[in-house]
Nucleic acid binder design. Sequence first.
DNA 1: CATGAATGAGGTTTCATTCAT
DNA 2: TATGAATGAAACCTCATTCAT
Lengths: 206, 206, 206, 206
Amino acid sequence: MPKIVDHRERRRSIATAACATVAEVGLERTTLAAVARRCALTTGAIAHYFPNKDALLDAALRESYRRQIERMDARVTDGASLETVMLESLPGSAESRELMQVWLAFWGRAIGDVATARAQRRVHALWLKRVTREIERAVASGRLPAAIDTSEEAEALIAQVRGLCIRALFEPANWPATRLAACLARYLDRVVVSADAASLPGRRRA
Amino acid sequence: MPKIVDHRERRRSIATAACATVAEVGLERTTLAAVARRCALTTGAIAHYFPNKDALLDAALRESYRRQIERMDARVTDGASLETVMLESLPGSAESRELMQVWLAFWGRAIGDVATARAQRRVHALWLKRVTREIERAVASGRLPAAIDTSEEAEALIAQVRGLCIRALFEPANWPATRLAACLARYLDRVVVSADAASLPGRRRA
Amino acid sequence: MPKIVDHRERRRSIATAACATVAEVGLERTTLAAVARRCALTTGAIAHYFPNKDALLDAALRESYRRQIERMDARVTDGASLETVMLESLPGSAESRELMQVWLAFWGRAIGDVATARAQRRVHALWLKRVTREIERAVASGRLPAAIDTSEEAEALIAQVRGLCIRALFEPANWPATRLAACLARYLDRVVVSADAASLPGRRRA
Amino acid sequence: MPKIVDHRERRRSIATAACATVAEVGLERTTLAAVARRCALTTGAIAHYFPNKDALLDAALRESYRRQIERMDARVTDGASLETVMLESLPGSAESRELMQVWLAFWGRAIGDVATARAQRRVHALWLKRVTREIERAVASGRLPAAIDTSEEAEALIAQVRGLCIRALFEPANWPATRLAACLARYLDRVVVSADAASLPGRRRA
DNA sequence: CATGAATGAGGTTTCATTCAT
DNA sequence: TATGAATGAAACCTCATTCAT
């Protein structure tokens, strides 16, 4: 019998190592040798699990997305508020910081690499669906007003979070979790308030 | 007898070519030869103007920032609204699309490359100052309420715009200029409305 | 308790798979993995039967030779003419085509690989002996004149057949079995006629 | 001004080095490093002249063909007989030996490599035309009878020569130039005699 | 015996950088 | 200054071989 190896599991562990490497040194310096070193293998061994580097990087992107969703789900199970759930995708902890660095790295890669761009769109579609569902839950719980386009709000919310994410990654000292949370809360508050205002007679902007 | 060349001007034209190349094929595939080809020079010629590739890329990032500011300034001179000014930094035109692709590319590069990260922070500081000034002008003109922290609002606004930018770059078909404008307008409206609400007696969220 | 396996038989089936692989993709692309796949084994299993790749390829060459002789013998048993027998070694059928591709592949390999060159010579010696015998039979049956050096004629005949073989492998559409047969018949006819001419008084070339 | 290099000439010298390497160690062991070493360059330098290894090998095949034609032409200019001209393409000298080894190597490569097979066919077509012309000259000079299909004879002659070539390459000791010449002369004599016989009343084979 | 994971040694290819002209 | 040939250092990839199970 051959050496007992869970192929699926091994693939995932290599992809995880790739994630960590990308987050640490960037895509440009992510070599197969570096990834192999991190999971105590050789480049040849990686070839058993991924036909080439692109396939490995693709798996790494998907893995980072999967872990991100997992983190969000864990919060949801806790019955947490929308803010708390979304905060999971901001670089507050070491893990989410790592995941967001991976996403950031792949955004740049998508320029001029159609395969990555496609993967990017696929992952975003899943992410959008997930965030939309959270917003729907928030509406259901009364946290957000009913008079909103949940899907459009999800896009806008994701945009806001991503933008903050970039800032937090580049200047972590200036963007502690508290500041991120405050910014996010303010954003959501305004969603509420503006919906209230729209439903009342009152002055509108010119 | 040295050939008469405007050193400053030549540097800029090379940096511009680098910008265009990065936007077209991505940082990963941006080679010196590709940049040289684009500005009808040779790699050896580039070596006269930049000590190495990193210096060239650094110049390209600064160049893209400079052009972005220029575009914003042009709108301000027109006496345009805050929305219109900020829209300039969303990929509506071919030029702004190119510039934003360059920024996106460099965000990824900043991971694990401290020099790029530093350059990134420097450029952001300038950008933030610029957007803050625009917000101050909007407050002065009554477009935005006075009761806001202009700098913090600038950060949030930049975050929102960047997030939309990423979406528009990846799925241009789904994000025409009109949708971007609508999203941006909604965002700014909420800034106004929430400030109004805060200044009035009324229900606040729990 | 070792599994019951006919070692000899297994070796042959692996060598046959190697032949087929070489004929299909060429020596250069013939990997152990490809051969293993073709005979539903693994590379490790092959290692039980051949100490290394060279040994396997050597066996493949011998196997292709053995099958070629077998085909010839089958014709001889039928009491076929020399033409018919030799035609068996031209790529008329799928099998002979495969065998000749293998030979062709190994000719190239013999350059700079003394072991293959040696094997090549060994196989040729056997082949020559076999063809010589067929020519002797043709002389005995009156098909060919007695006044020939059978061994030298065998060499020349093999040379002719090989040359045609190469053409037929590269441009099968231009070299159907009929054209090959016609060419071969013409060649043999000339052997007859020239011997006749030599035995008669008549004009010879200067 | 750049280093003065005749690009065309340099390409050819690299292709020549590739030929020599193939002839010496075989295609399998022909590495870019080996070729580079032979022409005192580095693998990187070769990349200036050939986009990849396949292109280099293709050039090598064409170069070997070109030199072969050149050798034949030199004989023709001498007013040599058909035998003498064709002998140039048999491994009599070190140079023709090298050239034929190259051809032999590429025959094997053509299996499973469509590009090489195509190149092979192209080169053969040119070679065939060349040999056909020589046969026509032989007919014109009375050396060969007029009643032959020159093109078909050319194919058959090439086949014969190729077959002898293979033998001479593998067992040079057994196939000195004299034996090759004798074999070729016998072959051509039979062409003459058989045509004579066909034009006379006489016994034909059953 | 058989498996197939893992190794490790090349090989090809790409490119920033240098430098003779 | 400008050229572009050449270098040399990676990087990716392939694969024969080994070996724990």
